[in-house]
């Protein structure tokens, strides 16, 4: 790994695929040196970001996210866009590695010169997904990708994290599975900008249309979270390529409406502030838990709480008290 940040900055701005890929590796790295380097690179690239359309796509495993992105992405490159896809695989556990097979379902997009697809193992850290994906998205924008798509499986918390960093959050559903809403947290629907029932083809067409009605009703019952946008429920078939263009129109429509009303700018501002708050939270935790005093005191305190010798409140207070004494480090 080269250590000169400018090398990466220049490479990314020159749209060099190799450098972009390596920059993402630095962002994803858990190594402190890499993280520092990545930070510098991202900071220098920041002025060149923000011009892309950011789309998050979530759905239960097998909903057809990758197949959908294959269609959607090739349609977009066909329209002259440059498309980056970040596929997060949360299935990996801490102990093992991951199988990253998303590109096998994005065969055409994977070889498209105007597309960049990067599957990432999340390595079991959810907070990590947030930070790394966000920075990766920015770097992709700086490399001239004007549509960035983030694929994430809707089973954990990762999807709300993703929702908080994109302009448009699309939830892909399939008909027929009644328990689906349970598998997928209700909260996801609350942040959805559109729900799309995929696999509306063959024998499944009718069921997809029924599901569409059901979700429409369900959506009507909840509070709108934007004065300018009422999330539609659409159907599509990723395999047959039907309904894909309609979804793009919807995304553009959303963008127009929110831009005109100023909501988009607000949204990005809020996201940036949320992001800062998140980073502060994370930084504080990190600082707190890695400080010598806490590291030393914590095991004993934990034991005392376990054995009922100290109350949880008292234990927490005694540790937090240390926050106020400035000689903690």
């Amino acid at each position: 790994m080269l250590n000169d940040p400018q090398h990466y900055v220049t490479g990314v701005l020159n749209r060099d695929r190799l450098t972009l890929a390596r920059t993402i590796t630095l962002i994803e790295s858990t190594h402190p040196n890499h993280q520092q380097l990545a930070q510098t690179i991202v900071d220098r690239l920041l002025p060149y970001t923000g011009r892309g359309i950011r789309i998050g796509i979530t759905g239960v495993p097998g909903a057809g996210k990758s197949t959908y992105i294959e269609r959607f992405g090739t349609m977009l490159t066909g329209l002259g866009h440059r498309v980056a896809v970040l596929a997060i695989d949360p299935s990996s556990s801490r102990s093992g590695g991951s199988i990253l097979g998303d590109k096998t379902r994005m065969e055409r997009l994977a070889v498209d010169p105007n597309a960049f697809i990067r599957p990432s193992p999340s390595g079991g850290t959810l907070g990590g997904v947030g930070r790394k994906t966000r920075e990766t998205m920015l770097v992709c924008e700086a490399a001239g990708y004007d549509v960035v798509i983030i694929e994430t499986v809707g089973v954990g918390q990762s999807e709300t994290t993703v929702a908080s960093m994109v302009d448009f959050f699309l939830v892909l559903m399939i008909a027929g599975a009644g328990d689906e809403l349970q598998g997928m947290k209700k909260g996801v629907l609350e942040v959805a900008d559109a729900i799309v029932i995929n696999k509306a083809d063959g024998d499944n067409l009718l069921r997809a249309e029924i599901a569409q009605k059901e979700y429409q009703t369900a959506l009507h019952m909840r509070m709108a979270n934007s004065p300018n946008w009422c999330p539609p429920v659409l159907t599509c078939s990723a395999v047959e390529g039907k309904g894909i263009d309609k979804i793009w129109e919807t995304i553009l429509d959303h963008r127009d409406k929110l831009t005109v009303s100023g909501e988009m700018a607000e949204k990005r501002k809020t996201q940036a502030l949320d992001w800062m708050a998140f980073l502060i939270d994370e930084g504080l935790r990190h600082w707190f838990y890695t400080s010598p005093h806490v590291r030393e005191a914590l095991p004993t305190l934990r034991r005392n709480v376990e054995e009922n010798k100290t109350s949880p409140t008292a234990a927490a207070d005694s540790l937090l008290a240390f926050l106020y004494t400035r000689n903690g480090r």
Binding site: G97, I99, T104
Partner: peptide, 22 residues
């Protein structure tokens, strides 16, 4: 961490994927 490519790749396609996934 194991990336798997689609089947029936040309050497060029496989190389692009190797680079992109770093």
């Amino acid at each position: 961490d194991v990336d798997i490519s689609p089947m029936f790749q040309t050497p060029e396609e496989a190389a692009k994927m190797a680079i992109e996934n770093d």
